[in-house]
Design a protein around this nucleic acid. Structure first.
Length: 381
DNA sequence: TTGCATGATTTCTT
DNA sequence: AAGAAATCATGCAA
């Protein structure tokens, strides 16, 4: 910003210099401190105002002719080169030499990080087909172990999109502004001393400005990614116990399907919906099906490891299920309900006798030794 | 503070 | 790819 101010100052300074040299509009400057009478000054000011007011009365041709005359003056090139030289020496146009290398290292770091996070990468490849980018975004993030959380992906894609649109905007604005300034300076160089070197320097300054803006964009994008990451990892680390109700529903299913405690994908979805295991993940999102899978994985292994410990729990849920089943059966006009009817035995270790599976729920569930053989078997492990 | 319970993650197996 | 087993990390009651 400071540089910008300096730039504008330099530009305005040059403009003034141009005018005074050019002398096409020779406005007598008011001498404010010469100590003469106030009337004289008033007259001077009056003159200036008059000239300003009548400036538009001059015909365009007349002005053009004057301009042309000045441009064609034989001394003009020499005068311009001298003035350019003076400008160089006075340091009006010396700028940009001091601000060069430092941002490079940081810029590289930012670029690398954006690339690693999949924000900056695939977009550039192959001339960017939008669909490909979207598809790539969905896959590219899996670079970091198991970060494939859909929310994480969605948010990262969002960041990517914003980043790319902003970057494009900046690039466009930069080239537009550069050509505009170049045209302006080239135009002005006919009437005031501007060397090509100076134009080049100005273009460099503009590029520096825009690249620093781009760096800010990159930096804030990196920050956004880091925040997203940390939030996601925090959510992963923070374990929230499921509600009592949810645990009950899962346990009910587990013990009533003890013969084959492997819920199908649909069953998992159903269970997830039923107990609405919405462990707070920051954005209020749910990973319920995988949570159900985790729960069953843990439950199977822990039950198997220590059946004795779970026996009481098993009986409790068996009784509970039996009660509900009885009620359901009564309501359903004595239609026989079997707990295992819809399940295929997948693992031999969990398998019941064929007779058992045909038993009614009531008889089977109230038999204490009903489940244990499934896991007690030495075949396990 | 400690020890157990429990949800999540990682690694290995099928 | 799904599940088993091991392990980690946190929650929670005593």
């Amino acid at each position: 910003m400071e540089d910008h101010g300096r730039m504008m100052q330099a530009l305005s300074g040059m403009t003034l210099a141009g005018h005074s040299v050019q002398g096409a509009v020779t406005l007598p400057l008011p001498h404010i401190h010469d100590g003469t009478d106030a009337d004289g000054r008033k007259q001077d000011i009056g003159n200036i105002l008059h000239q300003i007011m009548t400036i538009t009365d001059q015909s365009l041709d007349e002005a053009q002719a004057k301009k042309h005359g000045l441009n064609c003056h034989r001394m003009k090139p020499a005068l311009f080169s001298v003035l350019c030289e003076i400008k160089e020496k006075t340091g009006l146009s010396i700028r940009g030499t001091q601000e060069e290398e430092p941002p490079d290292a940081q810029l590289m770091r930012l670029d690398n990080m954006l690339l690693a996070e999949g924000v900056a990468g695939p977009e550039k490849v192959g001339g960017a087909a939008v669909a490909t980018v979207a598809a790539a975004a969905a896959v590219a993030v899996v670079n970091d172990n198991s970060i494939e959380h859909s929310d994480y992906r969605a948010k990262l894609t969002q960041i990517r999109q914003i980043y790319h649109t902003e970057l494009e905007k900046y690039e466009q604005a930069c080239s537009e502004f550069t050509t505009h300034v170049m045209n302006l300076l080239r135009e002005q160089s006919r009437t005031r001393p501007i060397s090509p070197k100076e134009i080049e320097r100005m273009v460099n300054i503009i590029h520096l400005k825009f690249s620093s803006i781009q760096m800010q964009l990159k930096q804030s994008t990196c920050e956004a990614v880091m925040i997203l990451r940390s939030r996601f990892l925090d959510a992963r680390r923070k374990r929230r116990n499921f509600s009592k109700q949810a645990t009950e529903i899962l346990n009910e299913y587990f013990y009533s399907h003890l013969s084959n405690p492997y819920p199908s994908e649909e069953a998992k979805e159903e269970l997830a919906k039923k107990c609405s295991i919405t462990v707070s993940q920051g954005g209020g999102s749910t990973i319920t099906v995988s949570q159900v899978s985790n729960w069953f994985g843990n439950k199977r292994i822990r039950y198997k490891k220590n059946i004795g410990k779970f026996q009481e729990e098993a009986n409790l849920y068996a009784a509970k299920t039996a009660v509900t089943a009885t009620q359901a059966a009564a309501a359903a006009d004595n239609s026989p309900t079997t707990a295992t009817s819809g399940f295929q035995m997948k693992d031999e270790d969990f398998q019941l006798d064929a007779d058992d599976s045909k038993n009614s729920l009531l008889t089977s569930m109230f038999t204490v030794g009903y489940h244990t053989p499934c896991y007690q078997s030495d075949r396990i492990q």
